[in-house]
Design a binder for these strands. Structure first.
Length: 599
RNA sequence: GCCAGCUUAGCUCAGUCGGCAGAGCAGGUGAUUUGUAAUCACCAGGUCGUCGGUUCGAAUCCGACAGCUGGCUCCA
């Protein structure tokens, strides 16, 4: 009935639902201090402070009370009060009184009444509670008042609202879908990686199948770097305190670094970044303008202290491998270098099926080092590169680091979630600190520009993202096991073994299931392990020297000769593996059925 | 780090009021020789996260620590 208006007023609906939640909480609990309750991208929340500790067990009661308020169809009445009246109305509400004090002089102070619940609020709201269609409380969590770590922690209740029961269910299904794809769950089920209390939190162990995938990504990554004029470096995992003093890390980054270790009376620190080492390589000889640009990449494993509470699967860890690079160039070269870095990032993304890209451009903060002119030029080159690549971007004015402007690239995964992958960052600080120079045409020393960039971000985090993106069903080129050969009975095991050998010899990743189970069970296991192809060999196939092909996505594909199957699979692998040839799109951003190419 | 919750077999989870530790799957052994998502039987598997406390007695109650989950803050 009011469906069309709801689509427009979703924010009003959500915000009003938050108010109804707050009304329900004040009715059911004692000593409730209210803070605020805004609409969010997919629902709403409200922050409370009260002696009772909320748990999800409180939700049914709260939802029932909310339902009563909705059924009562109470009006939301807006009133403007003077500050004195407002202060009186908010007596005893410490957070609200502070929020009131924040409202700039001259701006109206508005309240919304809904039944006997009155709340300081900018609005706007729906006309009546009855316009709130379907809602559900989702979770409860702590949240600092005003988001400040030093402030008291409030209790935040999250909820979602939808225009119909079906729409609500669809939203819950999306949450369920995200849960099914959770890389921590899939990582265990598919035997990809693990972490161990005995080793320490945030430290990843890559299992054979995870390591296969990582190696495939790394091989691909290295080849692309060489193709694009990069050289690769390997540098140490630790360095002397003096290095980190010179780089400024001990002044500005110490909180993220682990305690030093003493070696021969000298202090050494585990590296949180690779840049100081790359600079040492740069400085190992005199550099001419003729040598520039120098593009040096490294899959560099760094260690950073992260607070215990922020660790999360592969997405936030304490030891990780950045796909790092440093580009040293002249002022005349920066524009092209930035453009190359961005188009490189886009080419990499495309291979993994990430085609929707957006960006954040962070510019000069008030307190910054480096000449104004350098900032201007560098920032312009970043903005221009984004324009030319037609990447929609937001500008975070003044949000850059003190040492240089940067661009962060974000992608959308198969179920529409955004992830930040790349960062491309100018550094005006480190070349100064280490006195990095090159000899110019004029024979004098000049300061090069230094660009720091990571395209996939870190291999751990990227792995977590693609596990969820693919839902564990890796495309053929990444699948740790591409083919499983399934003999129907013992009598076909020998033939199956020969087929397996043939596929191995053709560089396919293949295993043989010589177990005693029925075919259905073997297929089920292979399906659950998300192996792209199964080859069934029964008496007919053994006789005719063929295989019955089954794809994990499309089921039975009929019989084929081994040679034909190899050709077909090899062709499919090439599709995904070479970005230059990726004009045809082998990875539409929907899951599963996409990876089997053209059948 | 902060708030809340959780931690029982490799995995997913039962375990009532404090009274002998359970299931399914996975694993092992044997039987079965199977045609496109689970063949059957038997066996083995646990200092109930760790340490301390209360108690005649603790998986169960209390405390500390560790780890995990949802968030907040922070971030590749």
């Amino acid at each position: 009935m009011f469906r069309r208006r709801l689509a427009l007023d979703l924010e009003k609906v959500r915000h009003s639902a938050a108010h109804v939640l707050a009304a329900a909480v004040t009715r059911l609990f004692e000593d409730v201090q209210l803070d605020i309750g805004p609409a969010t991208a997919d629902g709403f929340y409200y922050d409370f402070d009260l002696p009772h500790r909320f748990t999800p067990e409180d939700f049914p009661r709260l939802e029932a009370e909310m339902a009563r308020l909705v059924a009562a169809n109470l009006p939301f009445e807006r009133r403007e009060l003077t500050r004195a009246e407002a202060a009186r109305a908010l007596q005893g509400q410490r957070y609200k009184l502070e929020r009131l004090a924040d409202i700039p002089a001259g701006e109206p102070v508005s309240f919304y009444r809904c039944g006997d619940f009155l709340d300081l609020c900018r609005g706007p709201h729906l006309a009546r509670t009855g316009e709130i269609p379907v809602f559900k409380l989702i979770s409860v969590a702590g949240a600092y008042y005003r988001g400040l770590e030093t402030n008291p922690m409030l209790q935040r209740i999250y909820g979602i609202v939808a225009e119909s029961a079906a729409a609500l269910q669809a939203q819950l299904d999306r949450l369920e879908e995200a849960h099914k794809r959770d890389h921590r769950k899939l990582g265990r089920e598919l035997d990809l990686f693990s972490q161990h209390d005995e080793v320490g939190a945030g430290l990843i162990h890559w299992h054979p199948k995870g390591a296969r995938i990582r190696a495939l990504i790394e091989d691909f990554w290295r080849r692309e770097h060489w193709r694009r004029g990069y050289e690769l470096l390997y540098t140490p995992h630790l360095g002397r305190a003096q290095l980190w003093a010179t780089s400024g890390h001990l002044d500005f980054y110490r909180a993220s670094m682990y305690a030093p270790m003493k070696i021969d009376e000298c202090e050494y620190f585990l590296k949180p970044m690779n840049c100081p080492f790359h600079i040492q390589v740069y400085k190992s000889q005199l550099r001419s303008y003729r040598d520039l640009p120098l593009r040096w990449a490294e899959l560099g494993t760094v260690y950073r202290y992260e607070k215990a509470g922020v660790l999360h699967g592969l997405l936030r860890v304490r030891g990780f491998t950045q796909d790092d690079a440093h580009i040293f160039c002249t002022s005349a070269q920066i524009e092209e270098e930035v453009q190359r870095a961005i188009s490189f990032a886009l080419a990499l993304f495309k291979v993994f099926g990430f085609v929707e890209v957006s960006a954040y451009l962070s510019t000069r903060p008030a307190k910054a080092i480096g000449e104004e002119e350098r900032w201007t030029q560098a920032t312009a080159s970043l903005a221009q590169a984004l324009e030319r690549a037609r990447i929609p971007h937001q500008v975070d004015d003044g949000g850059g680091a003190f040492y240089g402007p940067k661009v962060d690239l974000k992608i959308k995964d198969a179920i529409g979630r955004e992830w930040q992958l790349s960062t491309i960052q100018f550094d005006f600080n480190m070349p100064e600190r280490f006195d990095v120079t090159y000899v110019g045409e004029d024979g004098r020393a000049h300061r090069p520009y230094m660009v720091h960039r990571a395209l996939l971000g870190s291999l751990e985090r990227f792995f977590g993202i693609i596990i969820e993106h693919y839902g564990g069903a890796f495309p053929l080129w990444l699948a740790p096991e591409q083919v499983r050969v399934l003999p129907l009975t013992d009598k076909q095991v020998e033939t199956a073994r020969q087929v397996t050998e043939t596929l191995l010899a053709a560089d396919l990743r293949v295993t043989l299931d010589a177990g005693a189970g029925k075919l259905g069970a073997k297929i089920r296991n292979a399906q659950l392990e998300k192996i792209p192809y199964m080859l069934v060999i029964g008496p007919k196939e053994a006789e005719a020297n063929t295989v019955a092909v089954r794809s994990r996505a499309a089921g039975d594909q009929g019989t084929s000769s081994v040679a034909d199957f190899v050709d077909r699979v090899k062709a499919e692998v090439v599709l995904g593996n070479v970005p230059h040839d990726a004009g045809h799109q082998p990875f539409p951003p929907k899951a599963e059925s996409a990876y089997v190419g053209n059948h």
